[in-house]
C-alpha cells in the first residue's frame, strides 16, 4: 500500500434537497485496501457510495477519487474506472443478460468478445439469452459482477454484495474482492454483516448519523 490514496475525503458534507445526509466525513483509502462500511438503515451508506463514485458532488469540504477532484469536471474522466453494484440492479429488464453486458461493453469501449467469458465466469453461460426481467435477483446481481469482471476498474463499490447470492456466488464475489485488492485497486463493501465483511476487509468504518466513526 503506497502512493497517493485512491480515495481522499476531507470534511465532506452532502445535502440532498434540504436534508444533510453526510457531514464532516474524513476518509482515506489506499491502493490494495478493502474497507468495510457499516451503518444503520438511513445512515447515509448509499449516499457515501454515490459520492465516492463521483455521481454526486459534495456540498461542503473537498475530496479526490482516483486523483480527480470531486467538485470539478475531472471526475467524468475517472468514472469508467469505478465500478458500483448497488442493492437495486442497474440493468435493463427488457434486454437479455448478454445484451445488457454487450451494451456495457460498447459504452465502456471494451470488446464485446468478453461478454461470453464474463457470463461463464459468474456461472451464467446457460442463461445468456434470458431477459433480465425474468431472471432472479441473484442472477441479476451476478450479471452486474460479470460487468465488473469485463471492465478494468480501479475502485469497486459494493452495496450489500452478499445479499440474494448463493454460496457459489458469494465465493465468486469474495474472489473478485481479493483479486481487485491484489491488483492494486481498492474495494469498499457496505454491509450489515459484520462477521462476513470483517473477515475480508483490511479495516472497517462505521457511518453514524451521516458521520464516519
Amino acid at each position: 500500500m503506497s502512493g497517493a490514496p485512491l480515495v481522499e475525503l476531507s470534511g465532506v458534507g452532502v445535502r440532498i434537497g434540504s436534508s444533510q445526509i453526510l457531514r464532516d466525513v474524513d476518509l482515506e483509502i489506499e491502493a490494495g485496501e478493502v474497507v468495510g462500511l457499516f451503518g444503520a438503515n438511513g445512515a447515509g451508506k448509499t449516499t457515501a457510495l454515490r459520492l465516492i463514485a463521483t455521481l454526486i458532488r459534495p456540498a461542503q469540504g473537498s475530496g479526490t477519487v482516483l486523483g480527480a477532484d470531486l467538485s470539478s469536471a475531472e471526475r467524468y474522466d475517472v468514472r469508467r474506472r469505478i465500478g458500483m453494484i448497488g442493492h437495486v440492479p442497474g440493468i435493463f429488464p427488457e434486454l437479455t443478460l448478454a445484451e445488457n453486458l454487450r451494451y456495457a461493453a460498447r459504452v465502456a469501449g471494451v470488446s464485446t468478445d468478453r461478454v461470453a467469458g464474463a457470463l461463464a465466469a459468474v456461472g451464467l453461460a446457460g442463461a445468456a439469452d434470458r431477459p433480465a426481467g425474468a431472471a432472479s435477483h441473484g442472477m441479476q446481481r451476478r450479471t452486474e459482477f460479470a460487468r465488473e469482471l469485463m471492465i478494468d476498474r480501479s475502485l469497486l463499490l459494493l452495496d450489500e454484495p452478499h445479499s440474494a447470492l448463493d454460496r457459489d456466488a458469494v465465493d465468486l464475489v469474495e474472489g473478485l474482492i481479493e483479486r481487485k485488492a491484489a491488483e492494486g485497486g481498492a474495494v469498499i463493501v457496505v454491509s450489515h454483516d459484520r462477521d462476513r465483511v470483517g473477515a475480508i476487509a483490511h479495516r472497517t468504518v462505521d457511518l453514524v448519523g451521516g458521520t464516519l466513526t
Binding site: L55, R79, G83, M84, G90, V107, A108, G109, E144
Partner: peptide, 10 residues
C-alpha cells in the same frame, strides 16, 4: 441505478 450504471461505464 440504471442511470448510475451508464454513467460509470463512462
Amino acid at each position: 441505478p440504471q442511470q448510475d450504471a451508464s454513467a460509470l461505464l463512462g
